[in-house]
């Protein structure tokens, strides 16, 4: 595929459209899902099944005045919400939805996505620091230690997968897992590594994704019962809206990565189901993972900050390191 100007514009528009649509309608899905879990109707007034709720919420937020607190650092205060949304949208460019649907495949796709993902932490720091609010400040300090603690096991686990596949190209990683469910990296009995510890790696990666995206039970950055609203306490209007959408866009990216790295991307679970287009399987896996995110959020209470750090440094990092070494040994043997 030659990279013409038209191609780039179409790709970017589709990426932004997909990200924004997902972010908006995941809010709706989350509210409906939470309502279902809590035995109440949820948003059901605007449009059929409340489907007009997200655009109306967006209009309401945009119509509001953006207040900047006195003494806040204006530049960073305005930059922070943009930083929350921008890396997630950029990451969509390289996500392959099927063999053919990908905006721009790169041979270092994994690296690019993690590079942008670590910028997400920066937006929390900027938001918390520039608001000049004690709650926001405490929240951003937590966000930094959380980001440091959880990116390490996440990256180590990713390296394990990259070692098995021998490539940083997302499409190549998916192609390696083609065949049946036993070729996927989550349970690669027939794959080229035969590593029985991969389910554990999957759980580590999934936990880290929860923590990376600041979702419950790891939503310490916006622990509403102690830090009011955390880093976005001082944000109103679309500033808050961007943080909100950024959170959901990050969930989509995290789930996409989990699907690609562990669940075989667009591959069908059984070979005879291969006649169904790959994009169906990809979206099915993606939304099942997102449903799990929502389910977990409305079931568990929040952890403590020290519980979170202990989990990362004492359990997740040693386990993921061990699996890295184990995988390296297996690759040498087979």
């Amino acid at each position: 595929m030659r990279l013409t100007l038209l191609n780039v514009i179409v790709a970017v528009v589709i990426a932004i459209g997909f990200a924004a649509l997902n972010a908006a309608y995941l809010v709706w899905a989350e509210r409906r899902g939470a309502a279902r879990i809590q035995r109440r109707p949820g948003p059901n007034i605007n449009g059929p099944f409340g489907l007009l709720q997200p655009p109306l919420d967006g209009i309401k937020l945009m119509a509001k005045q953006l207040t900047i607190p006195g003494g806040a650092d204006k530049v960073l205060f305005i930059a922070a919400p943009v930083l929350a949304m921008f890396p997630a949208i950029m990451s969509f460019v390289t996500i392959p939805f099927s063999e053919t649907i990908v905006a721009k495949n790169m041979n270092v796709g994994v690296l690019m996505i993690f590079a942008f993902a670590s910028m997400g932490g920066m937006s929390l720091v900027f938001a918390g620091w520039s608001s000049r609010n004690k709650y926001a400040m405490m929240s951003s300090v937590r966000a930094v230690s959380q980001a440091v603690a959880y990116e390490i096991p996440m990256l180590i686990t990713t390296i394990t997968v990259v070692m098995i596949s021998g490539s940083m190209d997302l499409m190549e990683i998916v192609r390696q897992q083609s065949g049946s469910i036993l070729h996927w990296n989550i349970f690669p009995l027939l794959g080229n590594s035969h590593n029985i510890l991969m389910p554990m790696s999957f759980l580590i990666f999934f936990t880290c994704t929860l923590a990376e995206t600041n979702r419950a039970p790891f939503d310490l950055g916006e622990a509403e019962s102690e830090l009011v609203a955390g880093f976005h306490t001082e944000y109103g209007s679309m500033g808050f809206g961007l943080f909100f959408m950024g959170e959901y866009a990050n969930i989509v990216i995290g789930s996409c990565m989990t699907t690609i790295l562990f669940l075989g991307g667009w591959n069908a679970p059984l070979p005879f189901l291969g006649f169904i287009p790959g994009v169906f399987w990809f979206l099915l896996k993606l939304y099942l993972l997102i449903a799990t995110f929502i389910w977990i959020r409305w079931t568990f209470p929040r952890t403590t900050i020290y519980g979170l750090l202990n989990l990362s440094w004492k359990i997740l990092i040693p386990l993921s390191l061990f699996n890295l070494l184990f995988t390296a040994g297996l690759i040498k043997v087979f």
């Binding site: 939470a34 809590q38 035995r39 419950a216 019962s225 409305w298 209470p301």
Partner: peptide, 16 residues
């Protein structure tokens, strides 16, 4: 109390 700890759903069950 559970809501203080960050779990929102039990409140709804208890209120019912």
């Amino acid at each position: 109390f559970v809501m203080d700890l960050g779990g929102f759903s039990p409140l709804m069950y208890a209120l019912q």
